[in-house]
Simulated assay, not measured.
Amino acid sequence: MFSLEDLPRMIDMTSIYADSQLKDIDRVCDIAKAYHCASTIAFPCYLSYTIKNTIGYDDVLHGSVTGFPFGGELTSAKVYEAKQLELMGAQEIDMVMNVGAFLSGNQKYTKQDMTTVCESVKVPVKVIIETSFLNDAQIATAAELAVAAGAEFVKTSTGLHGRPTTVHMIKTIKDAIGDSALIKAAGGIRDVDTMLEMIDAGASRFGLGVRSAEPILREIDTRLARESLMDYIK
Rank of each mutant, 00 (worst) to 15 (best):
Y232I: 01
V154Q: 02
H62A: 11
R211P: 00
A176D: 02
K83L: 11
S120F: 12
F43D: 07
L61W: 09
P8L: 15
S212K: 03
S120K: 13
I173M: 10
I11V: 15
T194H: 04
V154L: 10
F102M: 07
A34V: 13
V167R: 06
V28A: 06
M114Q: 07
I183T: 05
D19I: 00
D175V: 06
P124Q: 10
A176G: 00
T222L: 05
A185W: 05
R218H: 11
V65D: 11
T141R: 15
G71S: 02
T14P: 07
I129P: 01
A186G: 09
P44K: 02
L145Y: 11
L160A: 04
A148Q: 15
T66R: 00
D193K: 15
E197D: 14
K33Q: 12
R163S: 07
K171N: 09
A82M: 11
A225V: 10
R9Y: 10
A185M: 00
K23D: 14
M95V: 14
A146V: 03
P124I: 03
I128M: 02
I177R: 05
V65S: 02
A137K: 10
E227G: 05
I41G: 11
T156S: 14
Q107S: 12
R27C: 04
E73R: 00
D6A: 15
Y35H: 12
P44A: 06
A82V: 11
T115H: 13
Y109F: 15
K83T: 12
A181V: 03
N53T: 04
K155P: 01
L7E: 06
A42L: 09
R163H: 08
E197A: 13
G100Y: 05
I16Q: 11
V65L: 15
F2G: 04
G159F: 01
M13W: 06
D200A: 02
G187Y: 05
R9L: 07
F2L: 15
I129M: 02
L87A: 15
T66I: 03
I41A: 14
A151G: 06
A213R: 10
A185R: 05
I177Y: 02
M230C: 09
A143D: 04
M97H: 05
T40G: 12
F2W: 12
T75N: 01
P124L: 09
A38W: 03
N53H: 14
H168I: 03
N98K: 04
I170M: 00
G71W: 04
G89M: 08
I170R: 09
E81L: 13
N135A: 01
M114R: 13
A42I: 01
S204L: 05
T116R: 04
Y80Q: 02
H168R: 12
A203I: 01
I183W: 10
G202F: 04
T75A: 03
V117D: 05
